[in-house]
Design a protein around this nucleic acid. Structure first.
Lengths: 142, 142
DNA sequence: AATTTATATTATAATCGTTCTAAACTGTTG
DNA sequence: CAACAGTTTAGAACGATTATAATATAAATT
């Protein structure tokens, strides 16, 4: 559990003013043992359920994007209609459970290094992402 | 180059009536040497530029989704604000050029098999997708 | 070939997630 | 504490996608 003052420093160090809305969002996102995978909607719901004061939806969008730009969150693209964010900012891959719509982080015990034999000439690799979609046996597959 | 009658059969065989709109879309999508990566917008633009008669946007959406459901197209998710479709329906991975916003198909010469060591218990893998984002050296990276 | 039925197309409206706007507010600096 | 830049807010605007319901077309039936 991080203290409030640590969030204040974190924000200040990246040029973001430590407003009470941002600190509240920090609490929700980063005061956790496990990685948190969420959509904007999840986060907004979480905040409105757990706190009396509400934060405007625009502020939630702004803050999540600011945190992403500062590298405190990663965006994970699963489908065009769902944008997930991940508090785990290390390089890693994901399982996506199509039954529950939950994301699960992978480490090297689950997915080995991706072997990129030839890259596009003149280009630099900015990221490598593996998404493994899983579903129970009875589900449709494509 | 496939003949019109082949598209008629293709559509009939999958329970889709071969309407003139669907046949036109088949022409645009499948009468090609190379894989076609497109957004709905790309497709709509292509049709309106190359033909006199126009197809309603709703029909383009319906048709693309019908073709996807029948397995004639694959949807590739790059980011939450862009939905790409791919006429290459074999298992393959992609490079995404962040400078040009173009998708490039990979084969086994570029990306080796992904080694999934442990899957989620009780679940079946429905797909494995690798997306390698590339950009020129001068670009920002994350 | 005419009739019936089911399916598809169309223009337009509705919806949904996200971004924009401009006014009010707050944190920081001097 | 005054001044300023940055932030929050509610609500409007936006853009992509989906729904609607009237019209049109393809296929099946007579």
């Amino acid at each position: 559990m991080l203290k409030n003052s640590e969030f204040v420093n974190k924000l200040r160090n990246s040029g973001l003013r430590p407003t009470k809305q941002r600190l509240k969002i920090c609490e929700v996102l980063f005061n956790r043992d496990k990685t948190f995978h969420f959509t904007i909607n999840d986060l907004a719901k979480n905040i409105s359920e757990n706190f009396n004061e509400k934060i405007s939806l625009a502020t939630i969008y702004n803050t999540v994007h600011a945190f992403k730009d500062k590298g405190y969150l990663k965006e994970i693209t699963i489908s065009s209609d769902k944008s997930y964010f991940d508090t785990n900012i290390t390089k890693h891959h994901h399982f996506y459970d199509e039954d529950t719509n939950l994301l699960i982080d992978c480490n090297d015990n689950e997915i080995g290094k991706v072997n990129i034999k030839n890259n596009i000439t003149g280009k630099k690799i900015s990221s490598v992402e593996v998404l493994v979609r899983v579903a129970s046996d009875t589900q449709n597959q494509n």
